[in-house]
Amino acid sequence: MNKVMSNKWAIALYVLPAFILLAGLVYIPIFLTGYYGLMNWDGVGEMNFIGLDNYINLLQDSKFWFSARNSFILALVSTASLAIYLVISLILSGKIKGSEWLRKIYLIPMLLSSVAIAQLWIKIYDPNNGMLNSLLSTLGFENLPAWLAQRDTVLIAIIIAVIWQYAGFYIIIYSSALKGIPNSLVEAAQIDGANPIQIALKVKVPLISGVIKTTVVLAIVGSLKYFDLIWVMTGGGPNGASEVIASYMYKEAFSNYNAGYGSAIGFALLVLSLLITIIIQKITSSKEDLEY
């Protein structure tokens, strides 16, 4: 084994398949996306080089900035919802009756496809026969909105669906991290007289701070490139009110046959996600993760 690991050709041979796969699925598509963004191209015919015109137009495109606003709102709310998921995970990590069953219930959205979840919430938000309006009507509310058809309610409705969709994903991450904390540390805090809230805030949460940082990055970057559920539920409507960067990119590339401009939007989304990831890492890098 030592002979193999000391042979540079042998190391290259082992690494080459993974490198080819990574290059073919990640690096080459990224390069091509940036390259196509320099072209005036309908996605099928001849490409005409136009330099940075697509990227300059992007900076002046009010529709792009509106979709970016919606993506950032989704990212902020998704990040804030991590606190809810963390609290639920902390409660479930305690010795409460039925905690295992509750974990399984929270995992149900993970078992469904985004299309199925979108159809489910479309039925819930139905203005005439939907469960939400029926419940509100029973409670005495009047002039109930058409949640997915009004500009002032559509984004709220989508955000609620997204938060529900990813609840199980983040809860299982936090629950797994909390299970890794040695019981001796919790017992020591209890002996010192700490109550459950103090144990959660001063013992458990600091010990999983590295996991929390990772979920923040996942929530923000995932929200910025979110597409499928929104596309099925509203298609970016009504009148672009629920448009996000990914759906705007899709419309430009495949509906308006402007693949060059769509590629520029996609490349801008990549750069934006990368910059935000770096910023988050810089902000949190000064704080060392606790070890146990």
Results as ranks from 00 to 15, higher is better:
Ala246Cys: 10
Ile50Pro: 08
Lys251Trp: 07
Leu272Gly: 00
Val186Thr: 15
Asn2Thr: 15
Trp101Tyr: 14
Trp147Ala: 02
Ile230Ser: 04
Ile108Gly: 02
Ala18Phe: 13
Val44Asn: 12
Gly237Trp: 11
Ala188His: 10
Ile108Val: 15
Leu86Trp: 06
Leu272Arg: 00
Tyr174Asn: 02
Glu252Trp: 01
Ser81Val: 10
Ile122Asn: 13
Leu92Asp: 01
Ser286Asp: 11
Ala23Gln: 04
Asn195His: 10
Phe66Ala: 13
Asp61Lys: 05
Ile173Arg: 01
Ser89Glu: 06
Pro238Cys: 05
Ile279Glu: 05
Ser175Trp: 04
Ala264Phe: 04
Trp9Gln: 10
Ile88Met: 12
Leu272Ser: 10
Glu291Ser: 14
Ser273Ala: 14
Ala161Thr: 07
Leu136Lys: 08
Ile163Gly: 00
Pro196Asn: 10
Trp231Gln: 13
Ser285Lys: 15
Thr234Tyr: 06
Phe31Asn: 08
Ile28Ser: 06
Ile56Val: 12
Ile212Arg: 00
Tyr125Phe: 14
Gly43Cys: 00
Lys104Pro: 00
Leu135Pro: 02
Tyr250Glu: 01
Ser81Thr: 11
Leu76Met: 14
Leu178Arg: 07
Thr284Trp: 06
Asn48Cys: 07
Ile173Thr: 07
Phe64His: 07
Ala241Cys: 04
Pro182Cys: 05
Gln165Ile: 08
Ser176Gln: 11
Lys97Thr: 07
Val217Leu: 06
Ser78Asn: 15
Leu52Lys: 00
Ser89Asp: 03
Leu13Asp: 03
Leu107Ser: 15
Met131Asp: 02
Leu135Asn: 03
Ile276Arg: 00
Ser176Pro: 02
Tyr226Gly: 02
Gly24Glu: 09
